[in-house]
Simulated scan of single mutants.
Amino acid sequence: MPRPLDHARRADLLSGVISYIAEYGLMELSLRPVAAYLGTSSRMLIHYFGTKEAMLVAALETQRPDISALFADVDDRETLRARLTRAFTLNTTGEAATSLRVLLQVLGAACVPDSPFRPYADSAVRTVVTSLTEALTRIDPTLDDPESAATLLVSGIRGLIQDWWITGDTARVDRATRRLIDTAVAPPAT
């Protein structure tokens, strides 16, 4: 008879998986090193998650911020600018930084054909673009193609965050992120 799942232990393992990915990366990740890092066995990880891919996706789901809530009540440019700046200017420490580092790795891995991460990555991108599109539409119902504006903003910020992780040039990337947000949220030229 299979052992019942200890849900508290499962949650601890998922948190540890995120820490492992942030520290060691997603490339060529295998169960044995993750299990050793977590103080368990690869057999136990299979018991809790079934496959390595299922474990990784479950861990990622625990890190997904509620982007819909971040923009749900935004109906003016200043609030949107403040929310974007707070959420997406560089936070180099803590859980937000860990989540961003892991998300960037997953987005890269999702580009590989038949990637098990593609559905997760697709959903994450669509959620933030949709939420931002809705906020931009509330702010200016006459805005021409708010979805492309949201896509440009989200993709630009993602690229800037990746630039920062690669170069470590905090001052330059932070200035560029603020400039992108200011430009994207500026009122239309008259």
Score class of each variant (00 low, 15 high):
96 A>N: 11
96 A>W: 15
96 A>R: 12
96 A>G: 11
97 A>R: 11
98 T>A: 11
98 T>S: 12
99 S>Y: 10
101 R>P: 12
101 R>W: 13
101 R>Y: 14
102 V>A: 07
103 L>P: 02
104 L>A: 07
105 Q>G: 15
105 Q>F: 15
106 V>M: 13
107 L>C: 05
109 A>E: 00
110 A>N: 04
111 C>M: 10
116 P>Q: 04
119 P>K: 12
120 Y>H: 08
122 D>M: 05
126 R>E: 15
128 V>I: 09
128 V>M: 02
129 V>S: 04
131 S>Q: 03
131 S>K: 03
134 E>L: 11
135 A>I: 01
135 A>Y: 04
135 A>T: 02
135 A>C: 02
136 L>P: 11
138 R>K: 11
139 I>R: 03
139 I>Y: 13
140 D>Q: 05
140 D>P: 10
141 P>T: 10
142 T>G: 10
143 L>G: 05
143 L>N: 05
144 D>C: 05
145 D>S: 12
145 D>Q: 12
147 E>R: 07
148 S>Q: 15
149 A>Y: 09
149 A>K: 03
150 A>C: 08
157 I>A: 00
157 I>Y: 00
157 I>S: 00
158 R>E: 08
158 R>P: 01
159 G>C: 02
159 G>H: 07
159 G>M: 04
160 L>Q: 03
160 L>N: 00
162 Q>K: 02
